[in-house]
Computed example of a mutant assay.
Amino acid sequence: MIKYPILFLIGGIFSLMVAMGIGRFAYTPILPLMQNALHFTDALAGYLASSNYTGYFIGAILAGVLPLKKNKVFYLRASLLASILTTLCMGLSHSYILMLVLRFVSGVVSAFIFVLASSIVLDKLSATGKTNWSGLFYSGVGFGIFFSTLLIPSLNNLFGWEGVWVGLAIVSLILAIFVWLWLKESSNITLNKDEPLNEIKVPPLKWLPYLIIAYGLEGLGYIVTGTFIVSIAENTPVFKMDSSFVWIVVGLGAIPSCIIWSTLAKKCGFVKSLVFSMLLQAIGIALPVIWLSQTSLILSALLFGATFMGITTLATTLARQMNPSNSSQIIGYLTAIYAIGQLIGPTIAGVLSSYTQSYNTSLLGAACVVLIGGLLLISGVKYERMPLTKSLTIK
């Protein structure tokens, strides 16, 4: 049994704050600062983002195929240390080539941490009958985005963009200490097959390709806003606030989103909730094109924050329900297809934005891609309406 389940959960939350909220997504609010200082074009910024997502793709593949089952905590800790080092080194160099390498390595270890932490935490919550805590676990990404972005203006004013990376690395180190102390794996934990979550109606494994393809399209579409929304605000004359504020809004939206979407999924069905969340996200992505104002950018950020981690929570939880015996592998596959979309999206969007001198084409394309992904999932709604049978329960 887990003696202190709340500390274990907090350790999981902190691991996502380090790897995702800081290691991956801090780049978005720091990007305008780096562009102003180093004169990056949007295309170069897109390549730098895609380097991170290429690493994330490779890390997800490795996490899914390597025999990590018996040493999950060890690999998680090693990945956390590597994530902290890459964040630190981003502030110690002005070399674009080195930054490409650092963002690539950061992507690899971020994927390892996400897959391993998700597997460890979801398995243990399942074993102890606390699956309702899964939404709290994934809120770590939102907490990481929110708190790191709050620090960025002060760190930038004092030490410049280099000091922002170094300061966030120090914050990551402090959080990682608690992960090291609290997130441990017990060999006597076994999956609880009588757990109530297993009684939720889910599609059969043959439907899994639809989920994988839709999740890949989500990765391709959402990352355009995830990479450029702060730069869009920075370059919008009607936006009178500090551009990093939109990323704070993203974090605020993301913190409760996983809990809200998980609760909705248990009442209405995971597939229906996924379709609805992707529709909302598509609207949020396209909003600044349809109506460009300070208000629309804030609403876009809120809708984005309220959906992107909620979609991840729903997709990974649903996939795990469909194949709980090998959660690391199935989450690894999902994360890999998600990462393929992510590594393509910023490059296309960056080139289009540089060519057209506008983000509108990129945003509209991204919104359409997410919408198509949501429509692909509609075929799974029928399984949630069927009576619970032996073929639909998880064994």
Results as ranks from 00 to 15, higher is better:
L88N: 09
S391L: 13
G160I: 12
V230Y: 05
K206E: 09
L303H: 00
F137A: 09
K201Y: 00
I120G: 11
W180K: 09
V246Y: 04
P32V: 04
T41A: 09
T312P: 12
W133F: 13
G129Q: 12
I283V: 15
L125G: 09
I260K: 03
G365C: 10
L363H: 08
K184N: 15
M278A: 09
I113A: 06
G55S: 09
K390T: 15
F114W: 08
Y53A: 13
S15P: 07
I189D: 14
G91K: 10
I61W: 08
G129T: 10
F74M: 14
I344F: 06
A349Y: 06
S51G: 14
L208E: 05
L279M: 13
A63L: 08
V115I: 13
G219H: 03
A111I: 05
Q342P: 02
G226N: 04
A63Q: 08
Y75G: 03
F276N: 07
I145C: 07
L100I: 03
K201N: 11
V250E: 08
I2M: 14
P196M: 05
S134Q: 07
Y359E: 05
D123Q: 14
I348W: 11
A117R: 07
P203G: 09
I337C: 13
L66M: 12
L334A: 02
L252I: 13
